[in-house]
Design a protein around this nucleic acid. Structure first.
Lengths: 159, 159
DNA sequence: CGGAATTAGTACCGATACGGTACTGTTTTA
DNA sequence: TAAAACAGTACCGTATCGGTACTAATTCCG
């Protein structure tokens, strides 16, 4: 199981919610109530997203948050990067040089192969698509071509 | 930062190491020494990989582990799935039904869009490619086509 | 002009689970 | 039969995540 923090989980939920009515300005208490998420968390996350320029904030009595861009122009990669930092799957990436294994470990120097693939995948999904999933898409990576079946809309279960 | 456990990190390091000499039978102490990883961890991880049929184990004095398949036939998706369970990015996937937000949350029902994309990306990378990265590849996801630059072999830094 | 509503920032705490270790059992070779 | 290696399980300390509280700054409106 690949893990992201709950902040990111909640963040995507909130952004998806906001994408439904793009023009509306949402304040933290209302959003928390509508998404059934704890207010303090929602507040914290919205602040982060605003700081990262994914949301516009308006202070004052009639203040609130609104999407900074159209949902089609916001990728999952951006959202995750905003809430968790650079998209990389392990730690030996950002601190280049202090990894004691770098010399002898053939894998370490190729971690970015995986990271690139993940980032590309996440860049290919827009916030808009989280509301209206696209029909089956052709995924071409490396040598193999994999057809990802259409999203089932409800039939979650495991994968 | 998307996180995997260190078990998985180490596991990929070890498998990459073993892929270098595919026929050789490695025992845990030697592998630990060569990869400069703590023996107890290595031991634990190898056991897991053997149980998941990615490695063949041979007991006894001259025992050890060897790859169960050719490195080209082992995908990153399999490795990660073996060490961390099903590849999914959040928890509300495997326990279908007990998520209180499922009804009202438009994002939750579409998480698998992301999970599919990640899994496809990881399925497209073989263990062999971790040693000899492929030239630039065309990644096609959704509407956008992103060309992933060739791996830099050493110039890690962040992404 | 002042009070209320809302965002902005920071500091703090508890619990989960990850990372790591130890111990015992089983199998095989010499 | 003894040694070497894999197999399984149980255990613990601690880092980090999840969550809360408090204060400051900003804007609207009566």
């Amino acid at each position: 199981m690949i893990r992201i923090t709950k902040h990111t989980d909640y963040g995507i939920v909130l952004l998806t919610h906001m994408a439904a009515d793009q023009e509306r300005q949402y304040n933290a208490p209302d959003l928390a109530a509508e998404a059934r998420l704890p207010l303090p968390m929602v507040s914290k996350i919205l602040k982060l997203l605003a700081r990262e320029r994914l949301l516009l904030s308006h202070r004052g009595v009639k203040g609130g948050y609104s999407l900074a861009r159209r949902p089609e122009a916001i990728s999952m990669a951006e959202i995750i990067a905003a809430l968790e930092g650079p998209i990389a799957i392990t730690e030996c990436i950002d601190l280049s040089g202090d990894c004691a294994h770098e010399r002898i470990c053939p894998a370490r120097s190729n971690w970015h192969v995986i990271n690139m693939a993940l980032r590309s995948a996440l860049e290919g999904i827009s916030l808009a698509e989280m509301i209206h999933p696209l029909p089956p898409r052709l995924v071409t990576l490396g040598r193999s071509a994999v057809t990802a079946p259409a999203s089932a809309h409800q039939g979650s279960s495991g994968l």
